[in-house]
């Protein structure tokens, strides 16, 4: 059974604006998939549909066999625990420390204190921030902030990690570090979906590349490259 399945998925916005059109995709467990394309081609819309942030207009989406096409509001939190999400703009709480930001994901899910105390240091170790647990976001570099976000996204041990332009605000060194971290997470068994328009990052990865253009899948190669038109 595929981990993620898009079946003829389309999303239209009012005014007949086509965000994505007739997308059919299958992503297997353990894959590292890059979704590439220029800005405004529908990459982020695909992510938003996958995490049920928006309803789709046509088609079906299945996650581990679970049809989330018409997911009920009450079921969204269950889905979100299975899909960790990382965005370009970090979305960290400025008044909370690194530890508290990661712990926040567990707190809102009723995890008890002991569990939080045992899981958060492990996550910070994975992302290499165990020494900076008591720092606040503004005391960290962009790359470090993104690593906190990745640690938070992993808090529920999700099956899928979706990173939407995670390196968009980072320099080349930090970009490499984040991509290496994503590869490491993928090696642990988590399926990683990297949404990016960074050609170099994709080409260095040498993993599956799905190219989206004008809301449609233009190409899908197992060891692909991001070739600019």
């Amino acid at each position: 059974m595929p981990l993620i399945e898009f079946r003829n998925v389309s999303k239209y916005y009012p005014g007949n604006i086509v965000a994505v059109k007739d997308i059919t995709l299958i992503i297997e467990e353990g894959e590292f998939v890059s979704i590439v394309g220029q800005s405004g081609t529908g990459k982020t819309t695909l992510v938003r549909l996958l995490i049920a942030e928006e309803p789709l207009s046509e088609g079906r989406i299945l996650v581990a066999g679970w049809d989330i096409t018409n997911i009920h509001t009450n079921e969204v939190p269950i889905l979100r625990k299975q899909i960790g999400v990382v965005f370009q703009d970090f979305k960290l709480l400025p008044t909370k420390t690194v530890f508290e930001n990661v712990a926040f994901a567990l707190e809102v899910s009723n995890a008890d204190k002991n569990r939080i105390q045992s899981i958060v240091p492990q996550l910070l170790k994975i992302v290499g921030l165990q020494e900076k647990a008591e720092r606040f976001p503004h005391e960290l570099s962009g790359g470090e902030q993104q690593r906190v976000v990745i640690a938070r996204a992993l808090a529920h041990r999700p099956k899928i990690l979706v990173a939407d332009e995670p390196t968009g605000n980072l320099d080349s060194i930090n970009t490499k570090e984040i991509v290496e971290l994503l590869k490491k997470i993928n090696e642990f068994g988590t399926t990683v979906i990297l949404v990016t328009h960074n050609k170099d990052t994709v080409n260095e990865l040498k993993r599956r590349v799905i190219m989206i253009d004008q809301g449609r899948v233009q190409s899908d190669h197992q060891k692909g490259r991001y070739l600019l038109k």
Binding site: P77, K91, L93, V108, A153
Partner: peptide, 13 residues
């Protein structure tokens, strides 16, 4: 912002 993050990390409504 906090509410958005809560939703993102799986908080129930």
């Amino acid at each position: 912002e906090e509410i958005g993050i809560m939703r993102l990390v799986g908080a129930t409504s």
